[in-house]
């Protein structure tokens, strides 16, 4: 091959690589457009006000109603429950791994967390049905344990690896000099952790929590399998709920193409998209703040 041909190849491949970059933008743009397009189609038939303030989701009733509130409240309830479990456990574990665990224990704990992250959500959902559900039923005397609490426990398991990993990175990134300064004034390891290391790592830990929230809001299979999916306004942790993700998963398979109901599912997906986007952007904001803070 002479130089001219080789340089032609070089230019062609550079263009090819660049094109894939454009395609990545196009994928996100495509998802965004799809959601907007179908949501607009939905709003032509149902008013946005009814959609946002409606307290009933019943698309197939004789009087079809498309209120997203019960779904948003369900998603929020399950996510809050999950975070109540996962935040203390996650931060505690992250702190233990980075500050207390010896090298050998670390070599066991880190792969264990990675292993937990690798377990498919459908398998965790399955265990929600066969282990967590009966457990909750036995403890509370209910006929079955498929409720918001079950979903929250499973989502906590799903979100834990994210929280542990990112929080641990944040704690690790706190400069050793901070700790040394604290030891220097006579603080012990625990006081140093609580009063120096964790406050210094706070933005990173908040980022970990927000990314865990994003993970929990968007998770489908576990909540679909374990929360009972009663489409009613949720009353509490011991009642069955139905999240946005589960609603899409259940109804999309059966709904006829391009009906109001079909568009409605894209509209709730758009809301889901915005909720996870908000959580992830917040997470990213704190990650950047943490980086800037410690780059100085």
């Amino acid at each position: 091959m002479n130089t001219r041909v080789r340089e032609r190849y070089d230019a062609v491949f550079k263009l090819l690589f660049k094109t894939t970059g454009m395609l990545v933008i196009a994928v996100l743009g495509g998802i965004f457009l799809m959601l907007v397009w179908n949501t607009v189609a939905f709003f032509i038939k149902v008013s946005p006000v009814d959609f946002i303030t409606g307290t009933q989701w019943n698309p197939s009733g004789s009087q079809a109603s498309y209120g997203i509130l019960p779904l948003v409240v369900s998603t929020t309830l399950v996510t809050i429950g999950a975070m109540l479990i996962a935040i203390p456990l996650g931060i505690g574990t992250a702190a233990f791994i980075s500050e207390y665990a010896g090298k050998r224990l670390k070599n066991f704990l880190k792969p264990a967390v990675e292993m937990l992250a690798a377990i498919p959500s459908v398998a965790i959902g399955f265990l929600g049905i066969v282990v967590v559900g009966p457990g909750i039923a036995a403890l509370t005397g209910q006929p079955n344990g498929l409720n918001a609490l079950n979903g929250a426990v499973l989502l906590a398991v799903m979100a834990l690896p994210t929280i542990v990993t990112i929080a641990e990175d944040a704690i690790n990134a706190v400069p050793a000099s901070y700790r040394e300064a604290s030891y220097g004034v006579g603080a012990n390891r625990w006081q140093t952790l609580v009063f120096v290391t964790i406050p210094a790592a706070a933005p990173g830990i908040i980022a970990a929590i927000m990314l865990g929230v994003g993970r929990a809001i968007g998770e489908t299979m576990t909540v679909l399998m374990a929360t009972g999916n009663v489409s009613a306004f949720p009353k509490g942790f011991f009642h069955s709920v139905r999240t946005i993700t589960a609603t899409i998963a259940i109804e999309m398979g059966e709904v006829p193409y391009q009906t109001t109901h079909y568009f409605a599912l894209f509209a709730i997906a758009a809301v889901l998209f915005l909720m996870t986007l908000a959580a992830n952007l917040a997470g990213e904001y704190f990650v950047n703040r943490f980086r800037k803070y410690h780059a100085a």
Binding site: I25, L28, G30, L211, I248, A269, L277, N280
Partner: peptide, 28 residues
């Protein structure tokens, strides 16, 4: 700004819930 847009897209895509990928796959 082009490369920053690509990176922002990648970060966002990794946060998009899997069920929405399902919808996009269905539509596309």
């Amino acid at each position: 700004s082009f490369s920053r847009l690509i990176r922002a897209s990648i970060r966002n895509l990794s946060g998009v819930p899997s069920i929405i990928y399902g919808l996009f796959g269905l539509a596309l």
